[in-house]
Amino acid sequence: MDVGRAEGGRVLVCEDNPLIADGWSAMLRNAGYTVVGPTPSAEAALEQVQRQVPDLALVDIGLLGGVDGVSVAVELASLGVSIIFVTADYRRAAEARHCATDILIKPVTYSALVGAIAAAFERKGKPS
């Protein structure tokens, strides 16, 4: 699987740390994906999804506001969005594994991030 280039799937970045969110967004754009967001909170992610439903979402567990990433992941998954948790909180991500395609533990390399996204698109039957 070539993780260098993709063909345009829409990926929501839901991460409260702006440096990490910007880094992931740059990696995704470099790999050929369309970035939706980034959004720092579950509320902002759900507002963004009302404007444009992504194919896949990268979701951190710890987000700004009163709602965590697990709650937004459950909501997004119910809309058919594939979820990849990217978090330092493996325990919470593992508890919510039922709604996620994959779990990546921070810090995440470019090849791990883009490879997990490509694999998720492949499982979903969409070109990566």
Rank of each mutant, 00 (worst) to 15 (best):
I84M: 01
D60Y: 01
D89Y: 13
S78V: 01
L56E: 01
G65N: 09
D55W: 09
G66S: 15
L56A: 01
L64M: 13
L58T: 06
V74I: 14
D55Y: 07
D60A: 14
A77M: 04
E75Y: 04
A100Y: 06
D60K: 07
G69H: 10
L63E: 08
I61P: 05
E95Y: 07
L63A: 06
G62L: 11
R92V: 02
L76K: 01
E75R: 15
V59A: 08
A93M: 06
D68Q: 12
E75G: 03
G62M: 13
G80Q: 00
D55E: 15
A77Q: 08
L63N: 06
A96Y: 10
A88T: 15
L58M: 12
V74Y: 05
I61S: 07
L56N: 02
D55H: 15
D55M: 06
L76C: 04
I84C: 04
E75V: 05
L63C: 12
H98K: 05
L63D: 04
L64D: 12
V67G: 00
L64F: 10
S82W: 05
P54A: 03
G65W: 13
V72T: 14
R92Y: 01
V59Y: 03
V81I: 08
V86G: 01
C99M: 12
L76Q: 01
R91V: 14
L79R: 15
T101Y: 12
E95L: 11
V74A: 09
D68K: 12
S78Y: 03
V74H: 03
D89E: 15
A100R: 03
A77Y: 10
V86K: 02
A73R: 02
T101N: 13
I61K: 08
L76W: 08
R91M: 09
V53P: 00
V81A: 00
G65S: 06
P54F: 03
C99P: 03
G80R: 00
S71K: 13
I61M: 09
F85P: 11
I83W: 04
A77N: 15
A57M: 09
D60C: 03
R92A: 12
D55N: 15
V74W: 07
E95C: 08
H98R: 11
A94P: 02
S78G: 09
I84F: 02
G62F: 10
H98I: 02
V81N: 02
D60L: 09
L76T: 08
G69P: 07
D89F: 10
A100P: 10
V70C: 14
A57Y: 08
T101F: 14
A93R: 12
R92F: 03
G62W: 12
L58K: 06
S78N: 09
V81P: 03
C99Y: 04
V81H: 03
